[in-house]
Amino acid sequence: MKIISLLLISSFLLLTINPGVAKIEKKLIRVAYYGNMFGHIHRNPSRYSTSMTTVACGHPVKIYSVNKGTGGNKVFFNKVWNFVKIGPYEGYIRKDYLASKRPKCFQDRYPKFFDNLEIDLSELYYWGRLYDHYFTGKSRVR
């Protein structure tokens, strides 16, 4: 009896202390559009993380906020990454690569030019990875 009660208490403690075990609630915030030529949805919020799927410019992306646990412990996806959903895939995408309005994509501006290049699947993958690997900046007037 003692053992059972101990087990129950420990499992309860584990559930409350460890938020990873607790239920995760996702809430749709808004829909955004992917802004670069191609890109990737990552498994984790890291530029080196595995790609779940490739997206093209102008693709709508659902941005979610995530609540972990019942205590309303909100997890914000830092200033760099957003938690998103595209079709059946859930993952992370860089915040600055998303636009609130549908961007004017290169593929739409020059459709026939782009078609003629006949970019294959591996090139498409690399093109998406390229934006993951860039370290960007802009000099400004102070």
Binding site: H133, F135, K138, S139, R140, V141
Partner: peptide, 11 residues
Amino acid sequence: GHYEKRFKILY
């Protein structure tokens, strides 16, 4: 004094 210049660094 080189303002408003965007750059992308690729290692």
